[in-house]
Simulated assay, not measured.
Amino acid sequence: MALVLGALLVTFFGARAWHQWTYAQRVASGEVHVQTLRGWMTLSYIARVYHVPEAELRAALGAPSTGFDERSLKDWLAQSGTDPVEGRRRVEALILQASARQGTPP
C-alpha cells in the first residue's frame, strides 16, 4: 500500500514539475498568454509575483499612483474603459520588460 501511495505521489509531483518546466520554457521564449493574468489579481499581487514595479503597472493602466489597493485588474480595466485583452497585453509587456531587465523568466 505504501509503495502504491509513494508511486502516486511521485507521479503527481513529477507531472507538476514537468508542467512548470514546460511553462517556464514557453515564458523564457517570450510566449506569454493573456490567460496567465487573471481578472481577480490586484496590481500589488502582480507586482509582487512578477517583480514589476507597481508604479509602472499603474502608469500602463492610467491608474492613480496610490489608493484603491484592493481593486482587481478586471476592475481597473473596466474603470478605465480598456479592452480586457489589450489591458492584459500591456501588463504582460511590462512583465516581459521587467524579466529582461532582471535576467530572469517572469
Rank of each mutant, 00 (worst) to 15 (best):
A98S: 08
P53D: 15
T104W: 00
F12M: 12
Y50C: 02
A17Y: 09
M1D: 01
P84N: 08
Y23V: 11
K74H: 15
P53Q: 14
L73E: 05
A7R: 08
S29A: 14
V32K: 00
L43W: 00
T42K: 02
M41C: 05
A60D: 10
E70Q: 13
E86S: 10
P106I: 02
G103S: 05
W18A: 14
L57R: 02
P106Y: 03
P84E: 12
A55H: 08
Y45C: 05
M41Y: 09
P106V: 03
V4A: 11
P106S: 07
W40N: 12
R58W: 00
T11C: 11
L37T: 01
T22N: 04
G62D: 11
V4Q: 09
L61R: 06
V49W: 10
L5H: 09
V32Y: 01
R89S: 01
R58N: 03
W21L: 07
M1H: 07
E92N: 10
F13T: 03
V49G: 06
S44C: 11
V34R: 07
A98N: 00
L96E: 01
V91D: 00
R26C: 06
D83L: 05
V49P: 04
A7N: 03
G67A: 05
T82F: 08
A2H: 12
S65D: 11
M41A: 06
G6C: 10
S80I: 04
G103L: 10
G30S: 10
I46G: 04
L57F: 04
L43N: 02
A15F: 13
S29Y: 02
P105L: 04
A100G: 02
F13Q: 07
A100H: 08
Q79D: 13
A93K: 12
H51F: 07
R48G: 07
Y45W: 15
V49Y: 15
P106D: 03
G62T: 06
V85L: 06
A28T: 11
P105I: 02
A47Y: 02
S44L: 10
P64R: 03
Q25K: 14
K74M: 15
Q97K: 12
A93I: 02
V27M: 09
K74T: 09
G30R: 04
F68E: 13
W18C: 08
R101A: 10
Y50F: 15
A7Q: 08
G81A: 03
A17K: 10
K74V: 06
R58T: 07
Y23T: 14
H19T: 10
Q79P: 00
Q25E: 12
S65Q: 13
A59W: 03
L5E: 12
V85C: 03
G81E: 02
P53S: 14
T82N: 04
R16C: 13
M1G: 12
P84T: 07
H51G: 04
R48N: 12
W21N: 05
Y45I: 04
G6P: 00
L8V: 09
T82K: 04
S80V: 07
L77V: 01
K74S: 15
R90L: 08
A55L: 12
W40G: 02
